[in-house]
């Protein structure tokens, strides 16, 4: 756009094209280095070394897919994947449902809208560590919620998700939803505000109920917003790490392990770099699988349409 095409007669006198705009290129050097060296180079390096038997230090002793074979035969990894699957599916569905419902409630021209919005969004400003620790305390069986309800007279009340291997992941989910739904609500609310008032008038004229209008008309219209929200939620889920470390530490036993934690444990604690690299490459693959259809929908569609 700003780079006007030079007339060919000047070409001989000018220095090479490389020095055109040289100050802009120099100033962009940090960006270029980050993109090429850290993002592309770092990722390629990790993928390459996942085919080696590196332990304490990275070394180039190639072992083919051995690390991956070992990875998929490790219980801890299988548990991590299952946990991430359960957490991921529940979190995606519930975040979308809660986020949209809250946004729809706030969009009904209510009073104190901004107060409610601040309340729903403030957990998003807090870190996962803080989130995890607070919920660990609230869900503490001896002093927390369970104890309080028992104190009200319901002696047999049991709500102790964090100490039961079968339910610990739902304990994490409660905390994760508390922290993240506000963001999705905000995005949904922005989407709802973008919808033409006339749609509502038309629906009212046709005698369609409020809930039905949302389900049949508004949600299909908000497809791009939902896709953005899904991509955001999904990329957050794969990164799930701090919350687990703070709230459960992966326990009881290994029952709340997640892939991101597996990678870090093997790379930095167990000094088994090859395993860590293989596991992180698997994480990368899952992101690519999510990202490609989205990029296709988002950008492939635009070019054709």
């Amino acid at each position: 756009m700003t780079v006007a095409s030079e007339p060919p007669s000047h070409k001989g006198k000018r220095p090479s094209r490389l020095f055109k705009n040289w100050m802009a290129k120099l100033a962009s050097l940090p960006m270029i280095l980050t993109a090429l060296v850290v993002f592309v180079g770092g990722t390629a390096w990790t993928v390459t070394y996942s085919f080696t038997s590196s332990r304490m230090l990275p070394k180039t002793s190639w072992v083919g897919f051995d690390q991956y074979e070992r990875l998929w035969n490790t219980d801890r990894w299988i548990i991590s994947i299952k946990n991430l699957g359960i957490y991921g599916i529940c979190s995606m569905i519930l975040t979308l449902v809660i986020g949209f419902s809250l946004a729809a409630c706030l969009d009904r021209k209510i009073r104190f809208e901004s107060a409610f919005r601040s309340i729903f969004l403030y957990p998003f400003a807090l870190s996962f560590v803080v989130t995890g620790l607070v919920w660990q305390w609230i869900l503490n069986p001896d002093f927390g919620l369970q104890n309080v309800v028992r104190g009200w007279g319901w002696e047999s009340f049991t709500f102790n998700p964090l100490n039961d291997p079968n339910t610990v992941i739902y304990g994490l989910l409660i905390a994760g939803l508390w922290q993240g739904t506000g963001l999705i609500m905000c995005i949904m609310l922005a989407g709802l505000r973008g919808i033409d008032e006339d749609i509502w008038k038309a629906a009212r004229v046709d005698g369609i109920g409020t809930v039905k209008t949302y389900v049949m008309v508004i949600i299909p219209m908000m497809r791009p917003v939902f896709i953005t929200a899904l991509v955001l939620i999904a990329s957050g889920i794969i990164k799930l790490y701090d919350l687990v470390v703070a709230q459960t530490g992966g326990g009881p036993g290994l029952s709340s392990e997640v892939p991101a934690k597996y990678v870090i444990e093997y790379m930095f604690r167990a000094q088994n770099l090859g395993q860590g690299f293989a596991a992180s490459t698997m994480m990368l693959c899952s992101v690519v699988i999510i990202l490609i259809p989205w990029a296709y929908l988002e950008f492939g569609g635009k070019k054709r349409g």
Partner: peptide, 17 residues
Amino acid sequence: ILIIGAFIPYQTMLYPI
């Protein structure tokens, strides 16, 4: 590349860094 990099799990870049 930079924007795609935002989606790459940090775990893949931790050790090279």
